[in-house]
Nucleic acid binder design. Sequence first.
DNA 1: CGGGCGCTTGATTTGAATCAAACTGGGTGG
DNA 2: CCACCCAGTTTGATTCAAATCAAGCGCCCG
Lengths: 227, 227
Amino acid sequence: MQQTMECAAFFGAQLSPEKPHGEADASAAMMVAGRVSRWRRNEACDAVIARGAVACVLSGAVRKFAPRPSGQRQIIDLALAGDYVGFAPADPVFFLEAVSNDTQIISFTREQIDGLAARFPAVASLMQHCAGDAIRRLEHHLLVQGRITAREKVGAYLTAMSRRVKTNGTNTIVLPITRYDIADHLGIAVETVSRAMTVLCRRGSITLKTPRDVEICDSSMSSDSDW
Amino acid sequence: MQQTMECAAFFGAQLSPEKPHGEADASAAMMVAGRVSRWRRNEACDAVIARGAVACVLSGAVRKFAPRPSGQRQIIDLALAGDYVGFAPADPVFFLEAVSNDTQIISFTREQIDGLAARFPAVASLMQHCAGDAIRRLEHHLLVQGRITAREKVGAYLTAMSRRVKTNGTNTIVLPITRYDIADHLGIAVETVSRAMTVLCRRGSITLKTPRDVEICDSSMSSDSDW
DNA sequence: CGGGCGCTTGATTTGAATCAAACTGGGTGG
DNA sequence: CCACCCAGTTTGATTCAAATCAAGCGCCCG
């Protein structure tokens, strides 16, 4: 997914979880309708999700955030390859930025989506499904934000990432974002993120090969006292 | 809305924000398809949103939460009359409870919704719209959760409620939930909520006629340093 | 090679949790 | 009818986790 991808295969896989018919056409139609754009690290790409539009991350990752007067950013959503953003009516409070170099996005206007959904039931159900995913992502994030201790937040973030990032069979993941981003995502200070990592290391819950390469040894770390 | 309501008028208003045709049929169909249930304060009504189902609050209010081992509840969503819940695939982590006596809910199965949406475009677009609303509610909640100080959280909660609750023209609102619920909603302690209220009173930002009746005097309180 | 960014660690401060206790009002039972 | 009880709320004292302030290290990139 990180490398240049086969869009057809990409949408095909998303569109046909159960129904084996019609998704080829739907996939082709989505490719034709959508506008693909490419962004570099930290570039603002918020224009692509104006007014009810929808966008899908093809490669790289994207963060949605609200800036704070203090200079902090409240990162409310992190969309990885395959994730959709922008179902809610666009709120001027939020910005969208590429997290990594060579982030590719395919975006659709509200009209395009409605048109596609009308012609292809598979697209309509994909959109429903993806809106549900977005809701689930937000709910989960809310749960993590509400966790009491900073260690739990960081642990929960790591285990969530290990589920969302491709792992090549190992339980080693490459964190898509910096410590600063993690801090803004979890609503805690960078130093606290760093300290939490250190503690988790000492406990043997994780191993840091480099700051970005994390091996998850004990996936029960997300709870000092579990849910 | 609090009293026994005219369902037809209710759905009619929701269905016809712009299109004046067909919504009468759609409204009638929704009333016939949906199952209305009635709950008392603190009753669990989670059964109604199983497996992709959708429910709409007719009167009263409903809270969606995840219990914590500590006995705390993480309230991730508060649905008032007119709000919809349950677009995300039901997650066993979450429970649904009535907040007030005489809470009425109308619930639809996934199949019912799909059927209605297929027959009535207005219903399909209503569902999209409501999913978007749910996302916005969650995003806003995430923003509030991420706010730094407890006073800001409480202030933001109050201003949000003043927008969502009917106010009879005045800027006095009746809080739909207890301090305990507010605490679990904002991820802070009851005592902290109470103290924050007291401080906001002393500052003149609000006036407490009774603990539940709040008059909003200065709606800029939601920010010690605004967004 | 210098500079800045990302990361880590240490010392200090502080806001909120926790522990503890008292007050209120509405509802129930004697 | 009154006494009691209890859920909800408020206030105070103490503790503690995380923010803040401060500094140093490694590394990539220009």
